[in-house]
Design a protein around this nucleic acid. Structure first.
Length: 573
RNA sequence: GCGCUCGUAGCUCAAUCGGAUAGAGCAACGGCCUUCUAAGCCGUAGGUUACAGGUUCGAUUCCUGUCGAGCGCACCA
């Protein structure tokens, strides 16, 4: 529908240019947008405001001029006016608006989808929680956000793949292995002490028990030496088990990945060295000594020469190390190789969803990727702020170290996947989130997911009533006469249905999936208002059919939105 | 000290890449169930958009500064 108005306005401007009222050639951009206030029409343009200078006229005078140039034969707009400082408001003809109902019912689950993405290939990487323990609530937020960003991009015509990067290399893997070994020794009645930095939590005990079950005392003779690597088979056993948990937890919140990418393969395939060579060839690698960090100085800090990448050439604050003191690759080096590898798979855009605690890391990865590909904006990073877990207003301390964190699985168990997803999504990622367990657990209507689902279930209830009265469901197929839908509540509802596709485009463009739940709450609210003041099952069959068609369209859009968010659309509550 | 993300009603949050009178929910108060699901609806009250400047037809939005919050700041991931 927006297209109709945009064509109309651009046609008018062209005509005014031909008449010499506006100068020919490039003019500044104007907008056609949905006014916030319904009384301002269905669409408004600021063209007269933007162009007044070029016409050497007052905005309102130019607006009047533009309207007199409106083609006489068009039927889409039946009212228009100049308002405020010089906006032009367009009111779409009611018949054209009602036409949305059959359009939606025909498109079904495809209503709202568009092709604005033009098949652009996008890789969305998210979660990527370390395989050293179960996912906590913070991971859950990133997971749901990443998944929703991917979904919103998909329905707007992008070709999307979801990827999980498994950090199965590096120090933490050895730490995990030794932690399991210690718990394993403990099961054989050896007394142990958990060194600082190890993972003491219960899940490590569970892994040790499973290890004992499978291998018996096979590993008892292993000598405890934290400076060396633990047995590879033990490490793999632990990581496989944890990754199994993570996959399960993700599945319970309806998240499924296309690819699981292992960091180890980068090391094994020599991708890291190859990437460093590429950078070296570009003259961006040197041996140097970094200045001491500006914050509180680590106890063991010492100046030492390192292999450095000149990320300052690409806007970063410091050059960054690629090799550790023991000569092995840093996490950063592996991450460069990983992102370079992703770029090599031919994506038009890479999106990473990270926790805000990794925010300081964005520039250096973008710098490296730009250096390697000569593309400036290939990598986009969406930062998701922290989740503060609260129980009845009291903060819950979370720490992997003492094992007091609350896992995502526990929260999902208590609250349900629908509520978890909806709460995480009904918030822009830029703001920290207080997640109150007590509130979320208390299945009260504080939780907007029920509000939206209830609207959906209510519509199904009406249709059940219809069947009981022996009337045909096909009355609501949108094919009958809809001209009796003249009430304000009805027209606002239909108009709202019409904005769904635009809302999705905005959500995709700005990577703001929270717009979807907010829209659904709005739609549910408009429906509840309508439902309370108008009887659907009217004795007049024509009116009955029209209203059934209307709420059927509402049901379709609610279902589409909820499904998109990975939330169920129940027929009964 | 530097960087990133923020600061909107008592609380939790929105506000369409600069738009018209800044909106919801919760909490408070007052109404609506013999009729399609009251997990609902209607109404009242609640604001100097942290503060000060700047850009312009127009600023919650963009720029600068101040104050305040969270996160980060060799070799960890």
């Amino acid at each position: 529908m927006r297209q109709i108005i945009e064509n109309l306005v651009s046609g008018i401007i062209k005509q005014l240019q031909d008449e010499g009222i506006l100068p020919s050639g490039e003019l500044p951009e104007y907008k056609v947008e949905r006014p916030r206030d319904e009384s301002h029409g269905d669409f408004a343009t600021n063209a007269a405001l933007v162009l007044s200078r070029f016409a050497k006229m007052k905005p309102r005078d130019l607006a009047d001029k533009m309207l007199s140039a409106l083609p006489a034969n068009q039927k889409e707009v039946d009212r228009w006016e100049v308002a405020g400082p010089g906006f032009i408001n367009f009111h779409i003809a009611p018949d054209r608006i009602r036409q949305l109902i059959p359009d939606i019912l025909k498109a079904k689950q495809n209503y709202g989808t568009s092709k604005v993405g033009a098949g652009k290939r996008i890789l969305v990487e998210f979660v990527s929680a370390n395989p050293t323990g179960p996912m906590h609530v913070g991971h859950g937020r990133g997971a749901v956000m990443g998944d929703a960003i991917a979904s919103v991009l998909q329905v707007t015509g992008h070709k999307v793949e979801r990827e999980y990067y498994i950090n199965d290399a590096g120090n933490q893997v050895g730490v995990l292995g030794w932690s399991v070994m210690l718990r394993y020794f403990e099961l054989y009645n050896r007394s142990i002490t958990m060194p600082e930095g190890c993972y003491p939590a219960q899940y490590v005990v569970d892994i040790a028990k499973a290890l004992k079950e499978q291998d018996g005392d096979k590993w008892l003779s292993v000598e405890l030496d934290m400076t060396s690597s633990p047995p590879a088979q033990v490490v793999d056993f632990a990581m496989d088990m944890i990754m199994g948990w993570i996959r399960n937890e993700l599945a319970t919140v309806n998240i499924h990945f296309d690819n699981w990418f292992s960091e180890r393969t980068l090391h094994a395939d020599g991708k890291i060295e190859a990437t460093i060579e590429q950078l070296t060839a570009k003259g961006l690698i040197y041996e140097g000594v970094l200045a001491p960090p500006k914050g509180k100085l680590p106890d063991d800090w010492e100046a030492r020469p390192q292999l450095l990448f000149k990320s300052t050439q690409f806007g970063d604050a410091e050059d960054r190390a690629l090799k550790k003191s023991d000569g092995s690759a840093t996490y950063f080096a592996a991450d460069i190789a990983y992102h370079f590898e992703k770029a090599g798979r031919g994506f038009d855009l890479l999106i990473d969803v990270w926790g805000a605690d990794h925010g300081g890391y964005v520039k250096r990865v973008q710098a490296a990727l730009t250096a390697l590909t000569d593309k400036k904006n290939l990598l986009e990073v969406e930062l998701v702020q922290m989740v503060n877990l609260v129980r009845g207003g009291e903060p819950v301390k979370m720490s992997k170290r003492d094992g007091t964190f609350v896992t995502l699985a526990e929260v999902v168990e208590e609250v349900g996947s629908d509520a978890v997803r909806f709460i995480f999504l009904t918030r822009s990622g830029g703001a920290p989130l207080d997640f109150d367990l007590e509130l979320a657990v208390s299945k009260s209507n504080d939780n907007p997911v029920y509000y939206v689902q209830y609207a959906h279930a209510r519509i199904h209830a009406v249709y059940r009533q219809l069947a009981e009265k022996g009337l045909s469901v096909s009355l609501g197929d949108g094919k009958g006469d809809l001209s009796c839908l003249t009430q304000d509540a009805e027209m606002s509802l239909i108009r709202l249905l019409g904005t769904y596709p635009e809302m999705l485009e905005g959500a995709a463009l700005h990577r703001e999936p929270h717009r979807v739940p907010y829209y659904l709450i709005d739609l549910a609210s408009a429906f509840h208002t309508y439902y309370n003041s108008h009887r659907i099952l009217d004795d007049d069959v024509v009116l009955l059919g029209a209203r059934l068609s209307l709420i059927n369209a509402v049901r379709q859009v609610l279902a589409n939105g909820l499904t998109l968010l990975g939330v169920t659309a129940p027929e009964k509550m």
